[in-house]
């Protein structure tokens, strides 16, 4: 069964017809050829498909396209502004925060979304004082908050410093 939807992706509006079974990830990759969100596990376990939905990071493989009609979506490909890479993208390059690179777009979008959560004062599982006003983003906090993004090359040793420094820019 088909449905007509509108998606706002990286600042551009797209009208498209999708089968109701189409995930947001497949709508982006297969219908719109926006391929920075990657399909890893397709079950919400690896985070390679992470995008921002109305500003919040989410797994696009578990979101049905039809249920997100009208949503503002930001992918890793849309983070650069006027040709300048996003500070988090530059930090990943400088710190060599990847090996094969397949999880990287998801890692970077997730990190950008995560920083907004930190700025909003959201605590995490490792935040000592639940009622703290300002979160101190140390390495333990980064590891906990990024646990939804797997890197099977295990480039974590460089991903953590990349995010730490990217968060300070």
């Amino acid at each position: 069964m088909d449905a007509e939807i509108t998606l706002h992706v990286d600042g551009a509006e797209h009208r498209l017809t999708v089968d109701t079974r189409t995930t947001l990830l497949d709508a982006l990759r297969e219908h719109l050829e926006i391929i920075s969100p990657k399909k890893g596990c397709d079950h919400g376990q690896c985070g390679a498909c992470t995008v921002l939905l109305d500003g919040r990071r989410a797994n696009s493989c578990l979101a049905l396209a039809v249920a997100h009609d009208g949503t503002e979506i930001v992918t890793a490909g849309g983070l650069a502004e006027n040709g300048d890479l996003h500070p988090m993208q530059r930090s990943f390059i400088e710190h060599d925060g990847f090996q094969c690179g397949y999880c990287t777009p998801g890692q970077i979008v997730s990190a950008v979304g995560m920083l907004e959560e930190v700025r909003a004062g959201w605590p995490s599982h490792v935040t000592e004082d639940l009622n703290v006003e300002e979160i101190v983003l140390d390495d333990d906090e980064i590891r906990e908050r990024m646990s939804g993004n797997l890197c099977r090359c295990a480039a974590y040793a460089n991903i953590v410093p990349a995010i730490r420094e990217g968060s300070e820019r």
């Binding site: 939905l53 990071r57 578990l62 959560e117 990024m146 939804g148």
Partner: peptide, 15 residues
């Protein structure tokens, strides 16, 4: 709060 923060991932908790 603690129970919620102990479950799933940041991306999943948002959805």
């Amino acid at each position: 709060s603690q129970a919620l923060l102990a479950g799933a991932s940041g991306q999943l908790r948002n959805l």
